[in-house]
């Protein structure tokens, strides 16, 4: 099992590199994973991570791109709910990369 070390504590990752224990997530853990992803977290990133974690709490799974856009749009406004905006923050596959940094499982239904 791979691990990520954050301030001397080892956190277990699954085979896809996602945090196994969502409850172990802290901002420092997010920072550490983001560094692996070569993403520098800004307040704009954090508010999306927040939306993602709330989504997970209510719906008990990590969202695919479409519901992620919808959730962000509802929480932060339609401009931020556009996929191009999320692509800028989390280039490549926003649903997967943002879920990983948010300490959530890999989205099941992701293309």
């Amino acid at each position: 099992m791979p691990y990520i070390e954050v301030q001397g504590v080892l956190h277990e990752l699954d085979s896809d590199g996602y945090l196994v224990d969502a409850a172990a997530w802290t901002l420092d853990v997010a920072q550490a994973i983001a560094t692996q992803e070569s993403i520098t977290l800004t307040p704009e990133h954090y508010e999306v991570l927040d939306v993602l974690r709330q989504f997970y709490q209510v719906y008990e799974h990590s969202p695919a791109m479409r519901p992620l856009c919808k959730a962000v749009s509802l929480a932060l406004g339609p401009d931020k709910g556009k996929s191009i905006y999320l692509m800028q923050l989390f280039p490549g596959s926003p649903a997967k990369r943002a879920a990983r940094i948010a300490g959530l499982p890999r989205p099941d239904n992701c293309l």
């Binding site: 209510v58 008990e60 799974h61 969202p63 919808k70």
Partner: peptide
């Protein structure tokens, strides 16, 4: 088992 109510609630988010 996983909660189906949570998945059902998410249907609207998937349009």
């Amino acid at each position: 088992q996983k909660n189906l109510n949570a998945l059902q609630a998410s249907l609207a988010m998937y349009d």
